[in-house]
């Protein structure tokens, strides 16, 4: 009798435990990820991205990488993120003022390079997007870019066995939603850290500038650094630099977001890292070369009430200085970044 009671009660006890385990299983089915470390280059500020809400993992990064290179995120399958953000151009569109979108359309702005995004608080030239995770939604749904609906993108991903597997590996189960998709893309682009240019090596004592480069650096620190602050070479402010609006686009920049006339024709100060690769320049790619940009600052500025005081009266830059400045700007090219196999198309073998 005693034995029976013991057996029975232990059975009940075990059953209760099993039910418990069953519930646990729903939450975490032996779910394990490999954490990736994010290294802040020496001397750089703390990143603004909240890594706690989206911890970097190998699985999340690889999912984001696959998404970044997948044309199925667009309506007709032809336009991936990477079609406008090319690694060899530091993830800008090489040699294009505007990028090509769905059905023979053009974008209305020049595609910026993608790197060091963990330090950036607002996105787009007008700062309209307030979180890195939300950024991919704009090109995916824009009629002149990828032209797809978010629901269609999610449906395509859900119907793909490989994606379901990768979502499970990254997030614990096969649920595909916008949050997971965009967090995975963020994990990929957050890892795009460009900090290995000659400039960086010089700062670390691993390389030395030649004479034009060091002269250019000194001129840069006198004339450019108030907007293009080191080490990211931007202060992330929005400024009107006296570029009149293109009448075919009528892009007034930040004013569209704030509805404040004081923000007319203000655009985000671009970082200058990899500037040699990201031509043409300005928000609409109107200048083909750095020389043209500098020519604008010394002779082309068309001042309006909103034009930045730093450039309103045109800058004094000599031909000699332009030459040295260009030598310096070329030290900002990170050739290891644009060849880093971690960031390449996962479907390609190198």
């Amino acid at each position: 009798m005693k034995k029976i009671i013991i057996i029975l009660s232990s059975c009940i006890f075990l059953a209760a435990l099993l039910v418990d385990a069953g519930r646990m299983k729903l939450v975490s089915p032996g779910f394990k990820t490999t954490l990736l470390s994010f290294n802040i280059p020496p001397g750089w500020p703390q990143p603004v991205y909240d890594f706690k809400s989206n911890p970097l993992t190998k699985e999340g990064f690889e999912l984001g990488r696959k998404l970044f290179y997948d044309g199925r995120l667009s309506k007709d399958g032809n336009f991936s993120c990477a079609s406008c953000h090319q690694q060899f151009a530091a993830f800008a569109t090489y040699d294009h003022n505007f990028s090509h979108g769905f059905d023979n359309t053009l974008t209305s702005r020049n595609a910026p390079g993608l790197f060091n995004l963990a330090w950036q608080k607002e996105f787009m030239y007008d700062g309209g997007i307030n979180h890195l995770d939300l950024q991919p939604l704009a090109p995916m749904t824009a009629k002149n870019e990828m032209a797809e609906t978010l629901q269609n993108v999610l449906d395509k991903l859900k119907s793909d066995k490989d994606y379901r597997k990768m979502f499970k590996a990254a997030f614990g189960d096969e649920t595909v939603n916008t949050q997971r998709m965009t967090r995975a893309i963020s994990q990929f682009v957050l890892m795009l850290v460009s900090s290995n240019s000659k400039y960086d090596k010089m700062k670390r004592g691993e390389a030395e500038f030649n004479l034009p480069e060091s002269l250019g650096y000194e001129i840069f620190k006198q004339k450019c650094v108030s907007c293009h602050q080191e080490p990211l070479f931007t202060d992330f402010s929005y400024r009107n630099v006296g570029l009149p609006a293109d009448a075919t686009i009528n892009d007034f920049g930040r004013m569209k977001i704030t509805s404040d006339p004081a923000d007319s024709l203000k655009f985000k100060v671009p970082g200058l890292r990899n500037v040699q690769l990201t031509f043409p320049y300005e928000h609409d790619g109107r200048f083909q070369s750095v020389i043209q940009v500098m020519e604008h600052y010394r002779s082309g500025v068309i001042a309006s009430a909103q034009t930045d005081p730093l450039v309103r009266n045109k800058m004094k830059i000599s031909n000699y200085e332009i030459g040295q400045l260009i030598a310096f700007l070329n030290t900002l090219t990170d050739s290891s970044f644009i060849k880093d196999p971690r960031f390449a198309d996962p479907g390609m073998r190198r």
Partner: peptide, 12 residues
């Protein structure tokens, strides 16, 4: 979820 169509992507 922004896929519900109640979200502005260009001006978050």
């Amino acid at each position: 979820d922004p896929a519900r169509g109640m979200f502005w992507t260009w001006n978050s």
